Computed example of a mutant assay.
Amino acid sequence: MKHKSIFTNTDNETTGELAFRSVRSDIIRGHLSPGQKLRLDQLKSQYGVAISTLREILSRLTAEGFVVAEGQRGFEVAKVSISGLQDIAALRLLLEIQALRQSIATGDLHWEARVVSSHYMLQSIESRLVEGDLSHVEQWVQHDWEFHHATISACNSPAMMAAHSNAFDHYIRYHMLALSFRGEAAAKEHAQLKELVLSRQTEEAITLLTSHVQSGLDHVLSTGKIPD
């Protein structure tokens, strides 16, 4: 089955698939806390699906790394850590660099339009945040994903896109726990990345992307909300 980010809405999904995406989203957004025990009776009432469906959902989330199976003791939300953030940031960057390189090489006008439109939405939110309205941080995380997703969307590799989306969702989970915006520097980097991508300056774009992800990682760690 094709992977979907938490920010992708799809019509005609089954009840089980909707519940899967709801549980997954609640973990990524921090509504289900790291280390929280996932009790089936409670989840049945919360998400409105059968115990057998919940077991399947939690097994799938275990395979994706969002849930940990505890043998006979059931399931719990996967914990977070500094080393975990560093690991997932490295994976995200590895995939994103390769996909960006391929997208810059093969992207057409439709791809350029996606990059421009997604950056316009991101810039609109970032302007509010820079002005001090921090009520839009969660919305910013969504548009940040959409912009980065757009820049690599012409890589012509569904497998790479799915792997990147999953890695990015893990990365988003840390951002949601920190729920902090890095400020004007991040907004300027996004604007510069857009221009480098559209002008097909591959190596310069990759250099900026690398420092951008590292700065984001450092910022999340600086909040002190990620345990050792």
Rank of each mutant, 00 (worst) to 15 (best):
I88Q: 03
D133I: 05
F168Y: 13
L109T: 07
V130Q: 02
L134T: 07
G71K: 07
M160Y: 01
M121H: 06
D87P: 05
S127F: 05
D169N: 15
L61F: 06
K79F: 07
S157D: 10
H164G: 00
I97R: 13
V77E: 12
S83H: 14
E112F: 05
S165K: 07
L109Q: 10
A163E: 13
H149C: 08
G48V: 13
Y120G: 01
I57F: 01
I51Q: 10
D144K: 06
I97E: 11
A99Q: 07
S153H: 04
S59L: 15
W140P: 10
I82P: 00
L129N: 04
T62K: 15
I88Y: 14
I57T: 04
G65K: 05
A105D: 15
L93D: 14
L100N: 13
H136E: 09
N156G: 03
W111T: 05
A113Y: 04
V80Q: 03
A63L: 12
E76A: 13
D87S: 08
M121E: 09
E96D: 02
D144M: 15
F168E: 05
S118M: 05
Q86Y: 03
A167P: 06
T151K: 13
W145D: 12
A159H: 02
I51C: 07
M160N: 02
L93I: 03
H164V: 00
I152T: 10
C155S: 14
G132C: 14
V141Y: 13
G107M: 14
H164K: 09
V137A: 10
S127R: 05
H110A: 07
E138D: 14
L134V: 10
I88E: 02
S157R: 05
V77T: 11
Q102W: 04
H143G: 00
H170V: 04
S52N: 10
V68P: 00
Q102K: 11
S157I: 00
R55D: 04
A78H: 03
P158S: 06
E146T: 00
G65A: 05
E64N: 14
H143A: 10
E146Y: 02
G132R: 07
L109P: 00
S103Y: 03
G84M: 07
A162M: 06
R73V: 04
A78D: 00
R55A: 02
G132E: 11
T106R: 12
S52E: 12
I125D: 01
L95T: 03
Q98S: 10
S165D: 15
S81K: 10
H170G: 15
H170Y: 03
H143M: 11
S165T: 02
S52G: 00
V115N: 02
A105Y: 14
E76H: 12
C155Q: 08
L94N: 09
S124V: 11
H110W: 09
S157K: 14
A50L: 13
A90Y: 04
Q102M: 07
A163P: 08
T151D: 02
H149F: 05
G132S: 09
I57G: 12
